[in-house]
Nucleic acid binder design. Structure first.
Lengths: 191, 191
DNA sequence: AAAATTAATGAATATTTATTCGGTAATAAA
DNA sequence: TTTATTACCGAATAAATATTCATTAATTTT
């Protein structure tokens, strides 16, 4: 009956927005630039999102979901905790290396004041399975007790900082460096 | 011969900028808002800084210097490495708790693309004494070998994430939580 | 193939925000 | 006390940026 929206175009827009956040920081995120990078007209952005704020919130949710999916890979759940943790850690590290713009996008916007409360709550709730995974390990006396959020920050914090240093060309993503980063996180959380 | 600049007013402006970054994120940093928060006229900002970019760069350098001064307190240098490290860690943690706007300001802007290369280089060079401290401990076989930047990211990363969680009211800054955070970092870096 | 529907366009417009500047007020030197 | 100098003000302006909308192009249905 009518022309339908081009899903590919939406992906182009989302990717463009992520890439630009990485390149220019999110203070520099301009709708005109997003349109140019996505190779669409400025007006087209408003076919998919009513406002810039909506674009950012929607994109944030999508990327955050993608990250959680990277973390909770059912394929890794049959293994021992250490092995599952190791796979999880590596998956996330590799994801960040492959799509630094996505990691930075989420990092930058999370505490930016630009996201709606609804979006923030969504971000926390979607992480529940990950927290459950940590809690179970605590109950089995495999890792330290305490608030799961603090445990988690000991894992994600160093990864993020390390990736940033790699992006800034201050360190190289060598096997040695990556292994050191993982090993330290493991020593941090283990009993 | 003439009226002189009011140092206090400059401090007001700097503090206002930091506070607003914390409140609204730095994408929302507007010169008019800074002026209002600092209780000065918009034009006054341009007495102290030629542009918004200059304001941000100057402020960044100032706050980063302040942070480094917190880290390298000569009073702590006579102690054992563990004790010095502990004091250092606590000083920094307390600083972040007391002035979260400063920590977040530096965090946010460091990878924002808004800082000049000169400012970024300054930030790295000023950290040298801290890196030296870490290297010495490595030579004395007290902590793990490897790139000092990776060691450092294992310490600052969790602190930053934890402070952010506290600010977001997701966890409380109890003795237990703070101690857990410290203990994990120590276990991460120790030999 | 024609009609109907809506995606897509991009120049024009609205809005927001950085910056300027003529005037005023405060302070230091003469 | 007078004069010189400059901080300070804030409304006006300039610049940057988000958003609209009349039009066109593409796609689906009949």
């Amino acid at each position: 009956m009518a022309r339908i929206k081009d899903q590919h175009k939406l992906e182009q827009i989302n990717k463009a927005a992520c890439v630009l956040v990485l390149k220019t920081g999110f203070a520099g995120l301009k709708m005109a630039d997003v349109a140019k990078e996505a190779d669409v007209a400025a007006g087209t952005l408003y076919v998919y999102y009513p406002t810039k704020e909506a674009l950012i919130n929607s994109l944030f949710k999508e990327v955050k979901s993608e990250i959680v999916q990277v973390l909770i890979n059912p394929k890794h759940h049959s293994l021992s905790f250490y092995n599952t943790f190791q796979k999880m850690w590596l998956s996330y590290f590799n994801f960040c290396m492959k799509f630094p713009e996505k990691m930075l996008f989420v990092e930058h916007f999370f505490h930016s004041g630009l996201l709606s409360k609804q979006t923030i709550d969504f971000a926390h709730s979607i992480m529940e399975p990950v927290f459950e995974f940590i809690k179970q390990a605590q109950n089995n006396e495999l890792i330290k007790k305490g608030d799961v959020l603090i445990i988690q920050s000991q894992i994600s914090g160093p990864i993020h900082e390390t990736i940033k240093l790699i992006l800034a060309n201050k360190i190289k993503p060598t096997k040695t460096n990556i292994h050191l980063c993982f090993e330290m996180s493991w020593q941090a959380i283990r009993k």
